[in-house]
Structure formats: C-alpha cells, structure tokens
Simulated assay, not measured.
Amino acid sequence: MADPELMSIGAFAKLAGLTASALRFYDDAGLLRPEQVDPVTGYRFYGESQLVRASQLRQLREMGMPLSTIGRFFTAGAAEAARLIDEQVGQVTAEAKEIQQTAATLKASLGEDASLTLCALPGPVLAAAVDQVLATTTRDPEVPVLAGVHLEAGPDAISLTATDRYRLATRTLVPSRPSTVSWAGTLAGDDLQSAVSWLRRRPTVTLEAGERTLALRTADGAVARCRVLTEVFPDHRLLIGSLPAVTHRVTVQAQQVLAVLGQAPATIGLRIADGRPSLLLSGTAMALHGTATGPDLTVWFELATLYPALSQALGTDVMVDLRGPDLPATVRSADDGDLTALVMPCRPDPS
C-alpha cells in the first residue's frame, strides 16, 4: 500500500508544472526517481520534498540543458552548478544570435524590397561617426574588406568598426529609436564616404538592411544606399579580447594634446614620470594637464598614427590605456556613445 503522505504521479505533475509522461521520462533517465513504486501496479508516487528538484529540472530543460549536463548539475556543488548554468546561458545566447543572423539573411534574400528596419539616427551624428572610423580604413587589393566599415545593430546601440590591421577604431551610437532586431554587415567605405555630406543635411535617417545594400532613408522618402560587402570582416572582438591587461592610464584634455601635436615631429613620445603625463617632442618634454597612473614609462608613436585617433575624440577629455612600450595602446573617449581606437607604438626616437 502506498504511503498516504505521497502523491500520485498526476497530482505531483500538476504541482511541479510537468506532465505525467515527462515524469516517467525523467524517472527512466535517472534524474527524478519516485519515492515509491507500487510493485503490483507499477504506479509511481512522489513526496512533497521532491518538488524543488522537479522545479529545477523543469527550469533547466526550459533553458535547453542536455540531460547529461542536468545529471552533473544535481550531483555538483553550488559553485559548479552555477558554472553549468552560465555555460548553458552562453551557449543558448550564441545560438540565438546565429538564428537572428540566419533570419536576417533569409528575409533579405526575399528581395531588395524585403528589408529589416534597424533603427533611426540623427543624420549629422551618423555622418560624424562615419568620418571618425573611415580614417582607419585602407585599400588593400589582397584584403578588399579593409576598405569597408563593419556595422552592427543591436537593441541598445549601433557600432561602426574599421581597421587597417595596424589601427582599429570603433564608434558606438545610441539610436533615437532603438533597434528591435540584430544585424551585422560590412558596408563599402566609398559609399559611406559619398553619403556623408548628404547625411549632414538630414535631421533623421532610418537604417534599413537588405540583402545587398543598407538603405539610409529619410522621412520625405529620400534614400542613399551603401553596398554590403560579401567578404568576412576581421574578428575585431578577438583582437580586443586578447590584449594584455592595461598597466598605465593617462587622462588628458584632448584640445591641449592636439595643439601640441600640431607642431610635433614625425615621432612623439608619451611619458609618465612621477605620476604626471607629458609629450616628448625632439627631446623636449611638454607637460600635459591631466592624470597618469602606473610606474614611469615612455611609449613612442608615429604622429600619423596617433594624431587621427586623438583628433576624432568625443568630448573634452581623452583616455589612453597603455600596456607597455611595444603593445597596442587604446585611445578612448565618450559623449553620447563612445569612440575606441587601437594605436600601435613604434620604435623609440633615436634623438
């Protein structure tokens, strides 16, 4: 006779938010055994104390966690169980992004009229962002995609990225109307350059992604189109993620630095000494208004590399993260979005 405090499989299933057939499946899988099985009828009976495990099992399956991983979850300690959850979330998120990209490609393949509305941006803001990253493109017959600008649209922001393999610039914008879809593609730099002056005269433009072009559409129906390149853009996230930790940070006024660099030689040094930043120009140290962290260090840059990264800075202040004399430096600024540029140092000035 069954324990009167135990529940039938039907009653337990209702409380646990599972079906009776699912409970039989999880029993056979060894994940949720009943407290008691009637030896004559084979009926399964469950205890109230099993509801917590049943609820966790249901939630893990809703996350798409495989049965084998769930088995490990129930035998793991709290830290290991949390790690398994994080791994599953990461996998599901990656799969969701792939599905979104596939869906975007599929919709675009329906024809140029079938487009995805990404977001709306002020025309002058988008024009400035294009100018800020186009300086980092290059024409390389062997890698033509380096002449393009990679655009990524997400729910919260739009990012424009360009690289010539020696420098990298990423500009992030906050759209006036947020995106409801995710999309990524590399736009022809020549087309963007041609659209810049047009964009500056448009209060608002809506970005619409098609299979072969990205349309910039205004409220009065005017449209500028940029080709979507088919080549794969370099994995800039991998590059940024693989950088060593920052060892020094300099925060200075952008206009002061640019004024000094206007008269600078081809090679300049950024020096940190006694916690103070300065620029070395032909052996002369020019003190900068700002702050610096880290032990004494001097990093040399070519003017043609450093000046464009600083001249496009947003707001009044610019932050330079250093990792050593021969590792990429990161130039960062922020004002209604952010601008990030990687700049390679050069050999020390022989003078």
Rank of each mutant, 00 (worst) to 15 (best):
P122M: 01
L160E: 02
A309C: 08
G241C: 12
A222K: 14
H236R: 13
A329Y: 03
G148F: 04
Q50W: 02
R249K: 09
L327K: 13
A81S: 14
A127E: 12
D164S: 11
T316R: 13
R200I: 06
S55N: 03
T291C: 04
T213N: 14
P348W: 00
G90L: 08
G283L: 07
T247L: 11
L126P: 02
Q101E: 09
V331W: 01
G262P: 15
L173S: 03
L67H: 10
K107H: 15
P203I: 05
P345Y: 02
K14N: 02
S49H: 15
H289N: 14
S194F: 02
M7D: 01
T161S: 03
T170M: 14
A245G: 11
P124K: 08
W198H: 07
P350W: 05
L339S: 10
V125Y: 05
L32A: 04
L327F: 10
T291M: 07
R249P: 04
R72S: 15
R139V: 11
I9R: 12
Q59G: 13
D274R: 15
P155D: 11
Q255Y: 13
V181H: 11
E80Q: 12
P66W: 10
M344K: 02
D336K: 12
L192F: 03
S194E: 06
Y26L: 07
A224Y: 09
V133E: 05
V37E: 08
P244D: 08
L216Y: 08
F233Y: 14
G241R: 13
D191R: 05
S182D: 08
L314H: 07
E62A: 14
P295S: 10
I158Y: 03
D326W: 06
H150W: 03
T161M: 01
T298D: 06
L199M: 11
A254S: 14
L126H: 03
H248C: 06
S8F: 04
I272T: 08
T340A: 03
L310F: 10
L192H: 05
P4W: 10
Q88T: 10
D235L: 13
R237G: 15
A162W: 08
R237V: 15
I99H: 08
A209K: 04
A79V: 07
A304D: 12
E152F: 00
R171E: 09
R332Y: 14
R276P: 02
A22L: 02
W198E: 05
Q50D: 01
L192T: 03
S159V: 09
